[in-house]
Structure formats: structure tokens, C-alpha cells
Design a binder for these strands. Sequence first.
DNA 1: CGCCCGCCAGAAATCGATTGCAGCCGTAAA
DNA 2: TTTACGGCTGCAATCGATTTCTGGCGGGCG
Lengths: 323, 323
Amino acid sequence: MATIYDVAARAGVSPATVSRVFNGSSVSPDKVRQVLRVAKELGYTPNRTARALRMQTSNVIGLILADIENPFFTALARGVEDVAGEAGCSVVLCNSDEDPAREARHLQIAVSEHMAGVILVPAGGHSDVTALIERGRPVVSVDRTLHGSPVDSVVADNLAGGRAATTRLYERGARRVACVTGPEAAETAQLRSAGWQEVFTERSPGADPREYLVHADYRVGGGRAAMVRLLAHPDPPDAVFVANNLMAVGALRALEERGLRPPGFGMAAFGDLPYFPLGPAGIDVVPLPARTIGATAAKLLLERIKGSTEPHRTIVLGNEPDT
Amino acid sequence: MATIYDVAARAGVSPATVSRVFNGSSVSPDKVRQVLRVAKELGYTPNRTARALRMQTSNVIGLILADIENPFFTALARGVEDVAGEAGCSVVLCNSDEDPAREARHLQIAVSEHMAGVILVPAGGHSDVTALIERGRPVVSVDRTLHGSPVDSVVADNLAGGRAATTRLYERGARRVACVTGPEAAETAQLRSAGWQEVFTERSPGADPREYLVHADYRVGGGRAAMVRLLAHPDPPDAVFVANNLMAVGALRALEERGLRPPGFGMAAFGDLPYFPLGPAGIDVVPLPARTIGATAAKLLLERIKGSTEPHRTIVLGNEPDT
DNA sequence: CGCCCGCCAGAAATCGATTGCAGCCGTAAA
DNA sequence: TTTACGGCTGCAATCGATTTCTGGCGGGCG
């Protein structure tokens, strides 16, 4: 690998000059030309490690996802990449798998790799990002908020979405709408089911919401099991609001196994169904602008990296599809 | 951030000793204890950037994917992560989006970030990995082989899979099996359709294979369009072999729009359908062990990183599901 | 004609870790 | 008692870039 010294020697200048050529300080035009020519000849690229060490920062931003196999998160990642790429940053992606320990390890790496900033889907609800913050590295949380830390957040309107989805099911004639939501600890799960519950208590006044609400794990298997449980109720629901995409797939499977399917059995889902082969097919989808969430988060992060010190914001995006 | 000098000063030893404590050289037991205590007090973590600069290598391995939104690749990524994580390496994931230019940029970064090695889904068929190789950084290609470079490869048995899928459709009574495959430039697309063609010419001797083979882009939209074209044939097929998961989804949509669906209209797909809500539902799936491919590649890469100099291998994995 | 200022370029310090080399000390062998 | 040896330890060089400081040079102004 050609270093800055090789270029300097061959161009008959000092390393400082070469550095200045690449970092836009004042260098006489002929030396600029000279240096660029040699650099091209030698195939020189600045060593990012050395640069990061010296500058105490890099142009890499970290993106820590909770589940890399969930299309919602990968779409979000696309949004981040699009914006970051345009700004000349590279994105490195890590997978916490909803495990706070793995998340902590990745955050640690972000610090010691001098990443310029981090976009994080907090796994535990109490992720510790102080190490980043102390070093002036901005953090943006996405999909879920991060309490008690000075970070920006970008989330969907979970409460309104839950409400809207449930309302639509009732308007389509459902008598009793159940709810499959995520883990109790998950903020999104709470909000989405809270939206459901508001409408449920109003529209199904006699019934006990607790009997029609099941917490699962936001994954296919969990959604299926939850649906099975709901169908076993003595007075079973005739529609269901499922709080995320993967569980909706699971719930559909459970229904299918019993010969049920939308729209006969009403279903609404929060977030677009992944690669659903059969159009909407009677399922009400509350759009979740994954890509926009990612893009917005990336913009916020880049602003912070550039030095913005505005008060920290939580941006709640409406439930509209990605453009 | 506490540095090695802070620890050294506070523990009353030299930085060299601190370094040796963390890198397992001989240090007297009491100094070890002393250093570790101080390190914990100060929350010291070695600066990976500095270390990478000095050692000319890091324990980060790069994984460059062609399409991060394709569940096949994310499953593959999981396989890589599982193995690498166990070996104490971190994985950073990049997305080339099938674009050789983006891929080149990521490879460049891999070099200048001193990554220990790279696992690559080659985008163009002629990816240039010489920069890595020259520096002794191993590269493993996955899903597709990389001609002309000294790298290990891990691929699925595309030819056999194409053959098997097509055979099964004929055995289920199909009269004429069409094929939707990937881009002409893609090796996997060629092999899978070659498998199909072998069986097709044998079982449908009168017909011209070229009329029943469509190249598309390995994405949902492309699969749908391809299927539409095939159905417009004057003597339309009554079954189709689709060469990847996403195009199968698209093809299903096209069928659905015309009131067709498996198993009435035969369909076989190469690779598991993503989050398919309705079990197999009459679709023949050639399993593609995505996770195993990733895990195998990671093992090969780690061996190379450890210094193995065995001749380079191409591992062809059979079409069996992930365990 | 002399002085000052601005522009350009180079020398050298710096970021934080690793590591070859050399010195120190204690013990065992001669 | 001297020599040798081996285990610890520290000094200082090193990785490759950035950046401050300093100095040379030329031009404009008094």
C-alpha cells in the first residue's frame, strides 16, 4: 500500500503537502497537479486507520439493528445508507439480536473504532450510550425512544396506528377485535396495543381487554402461537390487530391452518407485510415508513456530526407509506 | 477515554507492561493484578484504531452483500455472524446493491480499514479483490464464484437444484415447465436455468427452450413481469421454475391476478420463500441453506486469517435446508 | 529602499497501541 | 567469586496520517 510518504518522495514534496492537497488547504497549482499525478500512479489511498487515529474520528457511522432478518429493519437500513452515502459516509451494520449484551459490545466497538456517530434500535429499553455521548459522538435512536439519554429519536406514531387499524376493523363489521402485540418490555408493543385498547373498550364495551390481548415476541412463531391462543377463547374474536409484520405472517399461518383467512376473519397489521405474494388480500395494513425513518435518522445524525447543538428532538412520523 | 498511558501511570508501570498484560506476555503476577485493577477503575479499553494501525490488521471482518433486503442474504449474514462472533471477530455489513462501483468502494474501505478479511457476494462477476489479496487479506466469495482470483468460494449446487425442481414439476404432471431466471450476467442464473433446460428439452422435446425462458432481475417486480410474459405465450406453460425467492413472490402475484395459483399451476422455486404466510401451499421449494453457506464461508475465512495456505477451494453445498 | 504581510511548504509533534532491544536482578553452575 | 542465563521491565521506534509552528519568499505600501 502506497503511503503518503511514498507519494511525497516521488512528487518531490513533503508529506504535509500531500496531505494538504487531499484536504483542501492552500497548495500551489503545479504541486497539486504533480501530487495528484503521482497519487494516481501509485494508486494511493489515505489510510483510514491512521487518519482516524489522528483525527479522533472517522467518516463511518454505525447502525445497530435489533433483527437483521426483519425486512422492516433492512428497509430502514436502506434509508440510512441512501442518506449517508450521499454525504460520503459509509455505514456499518451490526446486529444486536435484541440482546442488550450484544448491543453493548457493538456500542463499545463504535467507541473504540472512532465511529462518527451511531444509529441505534435500542434492544433493552435502557441501552447505555454514555460512552459515546461523553466523547461527543452523537447517537440517534430509531423505532424506539431511549429514555434518559441526550439523543434524538425517530419513531412511528404507534398509538395512532394501533387506534386506526382497530377502528378500521370495526368499521368493516368486526364484532370483537383481538390484539397480538410484542414483548411487554417493548415500548412499541405497549403503544400499539394501547391504541387498540382504546378502541376496543369503546366498541366492545362488555368484554375484558385482557382476554383479547396477547404479548408475543415480534417473530413469526410467536405470532402464530398467539393467534392460536386467541382462537381458543370460548368467545373467540372475529378479527385481530397484529402489532408487527412478522407476527402477522405467523397469525396468518395459524388462521390458514384452521381454514380461516382474511377478509372473512378480519386482520390488520402494523407495518407492511414482507414480500407478501398476494397483494393486500383483505388485510388492513398500517403503513410504516421504514425507509423514511432511516433516512430521517441519518439526516439528524449527520447534522449532529456537523456540530449542531440544538435541543434533542423526538420525531414522530405519521403512518404513511414510504414514497 | 483512558489510554494505555493513563493506566500505566496510575499503576506505576510502563505502557509496555500494560500492553503485555492484555496480550499475554510474561508479567509478574502482582503487576498483572495491579494493572487489571487500575484498568477496571479507569474503564480502560484498548483503542482499536491505534492497535489496527500498529498491527496492520484488526479483528473486524467485512461482509459485502448484494442486496440487504433479500432474506436469503440476511440469513447468510446470520450464519457469518454466528461463527465470527464465536471467534471473537466483529462483522461489519455493507450493501453493494449489485452495483460494481459500490462494491469497489466497500472493498477499498475494507483495505484501508485494515479489515482482517472479507466475505463477498460478487456483484459483477469480475470483482477486483487484488488489493486485498496483495496485502494478505483473505477473501471468500459466497453464492457466486469469483474467477481468476485466489479465493475460496461457497456456493449452492445451482445446476442440480434447477434440475431437481424442474423434474419434480414434470413428475407432478406438468406438460410444459417454463423458467424465470436471473440476469444473464449472473452465474447463479445461468446454472439454475441450465438445470431447467436439461430437463425441459428431455421432457418437452418439441418445444423451443428459448421461448419458455425469461431472464429477470432477481426481484419481485421482475418476477412478476416475467411471469406475465410467459403467460402471454400462445401455448402457455402450465408450470414454472423460478430461480430465486423474490421472483417467486412476484410470479405468484402475477398468477394470482389471473386467478391461477399453485398447485393448479405448478410452481417450483430455488430458495425458501421469505416469510411465506401459507406454508408450502403447493410450491416446490429447492432448499437453499443460506445460513450454512454463511457459516461455512466464515469458517474458511477464519482459517485463512489464522494463516492457512492450503490450495483454494470451492465448496458446493447440497440443496438441503438449514438445520 | 525598507518593512510588513500573506502565501506556501517543510519539520516535527501527535494520536494510542505494539514490540525489538537492552538492562536489571537473582539464581545456578563452574 | 565469577559467568551465564532467564525472567521481567522499560525505552524508544513504529504504524500513516494531520496539523501547528516556523521560515522563506515575493509583492505592496509607506
